[in-house]
């Protein structure tokens, strides 16, 4: 199980992904979206793929990340690095709160609790109109700059510069996550996924580990949400809704559980397909529904592999990056 790929190989791979994506895609915006949703999917995969926890409330972390980062950029103007770090910390905090409640129950109750907390977050965001903009979303978000004192100040106004920023963050998180899943913590998570009772019996505090993985998932997902808000320069209410939760979940399963590479693939396939179909037909989601059923019924497990073939047929020109961990 523990394949010993040196970390710099993952670094090179992440670098290659970030470098090649824009060449294959029509816009930097789409490439940015793929990378940042890739982060959100990694967050979801930590829970589902590595620990076996199906969270239906990832949008809560994603949406909160959008709001926190947006609000900080509007009111505090801290610069990009502190803004994102604080957002991650807050995302982790919210995730810990949800985790503490949700892990009291297993199975279907767990799933429903995560969903209910996300809905709670949605309605709070909806209500807190003076702060979040309510239904209209949080408007006029500016992308904070990166200023290194006495050296330089980088602005991220252009699509390209913002893509570069997202790409750099993506590479860092990607490598860190590769490290995490092979670390002592990662191995305990795998153990919990495979056999919770035994993990407890040999001396692991399973509940505490679950809360810790929630914290990681929350912070990475909040980071993705923050980048999304900066990309749009706006934090829509929909970032925190049920639909976003199920999309992140779908990308995760699409890409393959328990694979950091698969996470990026899932995000890429989903977003490229959405982009492609959305132009053809406003009601394309019906195809998404069919695809979801088809994937779940006929391609359990080897989803990423099967889908490469499937999408290769549909959009051979667009999606040639056959990548499999």
């Amino acid at each position: 199980m523990l394949t010993k790929t040196p970390l710099f190989v993952h670094f090179l791979a992440a670098f290659a992904i970030a470098a090649v994506l824009p060449m294959l895609l029509p816009s930097y915006v789409l490439a940015t979206e793929i990378l940042l949703f890739g982060l959100a999917v990694i967050g979801c995969n930590l829970l589902l793929g590595y620990t076996g926890l199906l969270s239906f409330g990832q949008a809560l972390f994603f949406g909160s990340g959008s709001y926190f980062a947006g609000l900080m950029s509007i009111h505090l103007n801290l610069g990009i690095v502190p803004t994102l770090l604080i957002t991650m910390a807050l995302g982790a905090l919210i995730a810990i709160l949800v985790g503490v409640f949700a892990i009291r129950r297993a199975g279907i109750y767990f799933i429903m609790l995560t969903l209910a907390f996300a809905q709670l977050g949605y309605y709070i965001a909806f209500l807190a109109e003076p702060i979040t903009g309510g239904e209209d979303g949080l408007l006029d978000i500016q992308r904070p700059a990166l200023s290194i004192p006495f050296v330089a100040k980088f602005e991220f106004d252009s699509d390209f510069s913002f893509y570069a920023l997202t790409g750099a963050i993506f590479i860092v998180v990607f490598v860190l996550m590769q490290r995490l899943v092979k670390s002592p913590l990662g191995t305990v998570l795998t153990a919990i996924k495979q056999n919770e009772a035994r993990a407890e019996a040999i001396g692991y505090n399973v509940k505490l580990y679950k809360i810790v993985v929630f914290a990681f998932s929350g912070s990475v997902t909040a980071l993705a949400g923050a980048l999304y808000a900066f990309m749009l320069k706006f934090a829509p209410l929909s970032n925190i809704d049920l639909e976003t939760s199920s999309q992140i979940l779908f990308m995760t399963i699409l890409g393959g559980l328990g694979s950091i590479y698969g996470s990026v693939l899932g995000s890429a396939v989903f977003l490229v397909a959405s982009d492609f179909f959305a132009e053809l037909w406003p009601r394309w989601m019906i195809l998404l529904g069919l695809l979801l059923i088809f994937v779940m019924l006929y391609m359990p497990g080897g989803v990423s592999k099967s889908l490469e073939d499937l999408f290769a047929k549909i959009s051979a020109a667009k999606d040639q990056r056959g990548k499999k961990p």
Partner: peptide
């Protein structure tokens, strides 16, 4: 790996280490 996990469990806090690979 089954045995290693049981061994790792004996050092409390060890399982929360995420910044280096498992020993």
């Amino acid at each position: 790996e089954n045995l290693r996990l049981a061994h790792q469990a004996l050092s409390p806090g060890k399982g929360f280490v995420f910044w280096h690979a498992a020993h």
